[in-house]
């Protein structure tokens, strides 16, 4: 398990290659990449700043990955989340899960992302034509995380 919080961009191909290197038990790799859009809540977004809670952020994500490991057969995983200033088309977050079979990799990747959205302490502040605004939490994200509880 690797969890990284960084301002720098990441190379998805290089990260996945590094995760897979020398592990012939891996038969499936699922990945999710979150990207900055140029529109949100009907307004044009010129850029955003991501704030986080250093220390707690890493712990919260590690805890989410541990929960995923308890539910699915995961051989290795990687979560990278960027902080600081980002602009539309920039990559924000990468989740990679490697397992023997695709079912575990797909499910665990989605689970980690759904829980990260509602539990990891990050906050987005958008820069729009009308000034800056803090992004409001979405009820749909809570519902997405909650449905995993029902499946448990």
């Amino acid at each position: 398990m690797t969890v990284r919080i960084q301002t720098a961009d990441f190379d998805v191909s290089a990260e996945i290659a590094a995760l897979r290197r020398g592990n012939p038990r891996i038969g499936a790799v699922a990945s999710f990449i979150g990207v900055v859009r140029d529109i949100n809540e009907g307004g044009t977004v010129a850029g955003m700043t991501l704030e986080h809670y250093p220390g707690m952020t890493e712990k919260a994500i590690e805890e989410i990955v541990v929960q995923a490991q308890a539910r699915w057969n995961i051989l290795d995983s990687l979560v990278i989340h960027r902080v600081g200033r980002l602009k539309p088309t920039d990559q924000i977050v990468l989740v990679v899960v490697a397992s023997a079979h695709r079912g575990d990799a797909f499910a665990a990747c989605e689970f980690i992302m759904d829980y990260l959205k509602t539990r990891a302490p990050f906050w987005k502040k958008e820069q729009t034509g009308g000034g800056e605004r803090w992004v409001e939490a979405r009820v749909s994200d809570d519902i997405a995380a909650e449905r995993w509880r029902l499946k448990g």
Partner: peptide, 26 residues
Amino acid sequence: NQAVAHGDTPVADGDEVAFFPPVTGG
């Protein structure tokens, strides 16, 4: 102390307590 807390979570000497809005990462 960097773990999710609720209203009845104890607070004691030396603790680090944080308050923040609902999270919006990812």
